[in-house]
Design a protein around this nucleic acid. Structure first.
Lengths: 234, 234
DNA sequence: GAGTGGTCTAGACCACCGG
DNA sequence: CGGTGGTCTAGACCACTCG
């Protein structure tokens, strides 16, 4: 492993554990502490800046970026909808989890098999309902979900534990009007504009999931950042 | 201007003009050609890599990334809304282009100055109206737009030609209901769900544009791809 | 083996910020 | 003013790619 990667790993861990807070030691201090050149220190810091952990200001120092609820797209591992999956202190109430036919999911995933394990959940953050989600997972992979307590956790964690490694996905973001049932569940007015995220998930080349998520636009929306703004934009 | 910025500008122009294609001269060659150190060359190349212009491969060389019409989100230079900006054979009809106050744009961009050049356009693809867009560009940068024919082209191209280099931005995607005016313009029903994209654009650290785009969900939506699917997914 | 980009060093000067 | 990060130099060795 390159030195700067090791150093970056070291610093990242320290930040995540809370051992590093507020301000980072200066570059010369880090150079001496780790016995490397300043360029190596800077390379590590550069990496952590692009990952969103650090923010450097000329003349002032390098600072740990406080954790945010809503982070930029480019920092997310699973991008777009990870916004939902990873948002902290989130609670999901499972409305239904069953095995059934799902024509639409089969069509979207390009599969002949129409039997899926379907999980329907309401998702909330800080006591507010923000999303209604229906995930259709292919069989047999999805069967691991039938006996699992996924009220809190991620479907992907359950799949991972069952040996299904989600590697990629496609999200399509659109907008729809709330029908009466959805309006009731999400606590909004009928006909109101909602964000719709359709997701197709893959394990290697195999499609494993089709997911529809309906979001309250005033509770949550998607943020995408592109390019660089000298750390000021967010 | 730092040397590496000048060099990056130089190379970027060369790429856009087509003077640089396929493969870049090697780092030692660039170092000698421009009379700088290799670190400076690498810094410039690093910048253009993050901007999506270049791709470097150890042992092989540094290559100009070919322009693509439709790409997954993660490969996009300007990501999300680039889908709109770059969609082929697109036509925009300019409803208004004027200099005026825009409180909201000023607030969103965090500027005291409230005077903007505001461009309001309807955008269509293949004869169908798909989007209504209002871009508020800061002055004095935006003044270049006042005399420009932007019916076809991109606002960013005009800005670029005027020496304003857009380097970054943030898109926020949400959903709203169509009000009567918007419904009329977009040819849909009042109250219908539309996709709203709010964009903040930056040239370096300076905010240069606030843009609101309303999209017909059945005509166009956003696609984001994450991870890898052995090239099959899209 | 020659050439490429990736990493690393030890120095230097600068612009900027705070006390 | 001293300390910070930003820039820049002139070297060096390495892993990798390709003919």
């Amino acid at each position: 492993m390159p030195l700067w990667v090791q150093l970056a790993d070291e610093l990242r861990s320290a930040i995540r554990d809370g051992r590093l807070r507020h301000r980072l030691p200066s570059e010369p201090e880090l150079r001496d502490a780790y016995g490397v050149s300043r360029a190596t220190v800077r390379e590590a810091i550069r990496q952590l800046r692009t990952e969103g952990y650090l923010d450097a200001r000329q003349g002032r120092g390098t600072f740990v970026v406080p954790k945010r609820q809503f982070e930029g797209y480019h920092q997310q591992r699973f991008s777009l909808a990870a916004r939902l999956a990873d948002v902290g202190k989130e609670v999901a109430s499972v409305l239904a989890i069953e095995r059934r036919e799902d024509e639409r999911a089969a069509a979207r995933l390009g599969l002949e098999e129409r039997s899926f394990v379907v999980v329907r959940r309401l998702r909330g953050v800080e006591g507010e309902v923000v999303a209604l989600e229906e995930a259709s997972v292919v069989v047999p992979e999805g069967e691991a979900l039938l006996g699992s307590p996924i009220h809190q956790g991620s479907i992907y964690e359950v799949l991972e534990a069952a040996g299904v490694h989600v590697t990629a996905g496609i999200d399509e973001v659109s907008a729809v009007s709330a029908d009466p049932v959805v309006a009731e569940l999400l606590g909004g007015a009928e006909g109101r504009a909602l964000i719709l995220v359709e997701r197709r998930t893959f394990a290697g080349a195999r499609p494993v999931e089709y997911r529809r998520t309906l979001l309250q636009p005033d509770r949550m929306h998607f943020v995408a950042q592109w390019g660089r703004t000298d750390g000021e934009a967010l």
